[in-house]
């Protein structure tokens, strides 16, 4: 299985050791949002169920929710993007990461897309 997976809501999930994962928004998502001006992140320790809203991004044009593709607990947030939200536009799939989560149910990952499938999914949206 790939280590980096994608959701239909345009989030990426990078699986790491010990059932932890990093979540962010895809390049496609940041492009559609345009300039991001504010980011709202959850508190460390907060627990989420799959599909719940974990963060909010405000672009000039609209507010957009970031959903947790998996159930788990927030163990780290990227404070850098609160002060410099433009990092999400500049480098969404690396320096612009949102949260680090401790996954409680690994089976939930199975429905996510590989990069190739996600790219097909995006080109169908065009």
């Amino acid at each position: 299985m790939d280590k980096k997976l994608y959701t239909k809501e345009h989030e990426w999930i990078l699986l790491e050791k010990n059932n932890t994962a990093i979540i962010g928004i895809t390049n496609y998502a940041q492009k559609q949002l345009g300039d991001i001006v504010f980011v709202e992140l959850p508190e460390i320790g907060k627990e989420f169920s799959k599909g719940e809203e974990i963060a909010v991004v405000e672009s000039v044009k609209a507010a957009s929710e970031v959903y947790s593709g998996v159930s788990g607990k927030i163990i780290e947030v990227n404070k850098n993007i609160i002060n410099k939200p433009q990092v999400v536009n500049e480098d969404p799939e690396d320096k612009g990461w949102f949260v680090k989560i401790e996954i409680s149910d690994l089976e939930e990952i199975e429905e996510f897309m590989s990069l190739k499938n996600y790219q097909t999914f995006c080109s169908d949206l065009e």
């Binding site: 559609q32 300039d35 001006v37 000039v60």
Partner: peptide
């Protein structure tokens, strides 16, 4: 341009960036 749907039209949302264009 990054395109968007607007009132049934396909139109440019931005070319290089909303804030820069503004």
């Amino acid at each position: 341009a990054v395109m968007t749907n607007f009132s049934g039209w396909k139109l440019p949302l931005y070319y290089t960036g909303i804030i820069q264009e503004h």
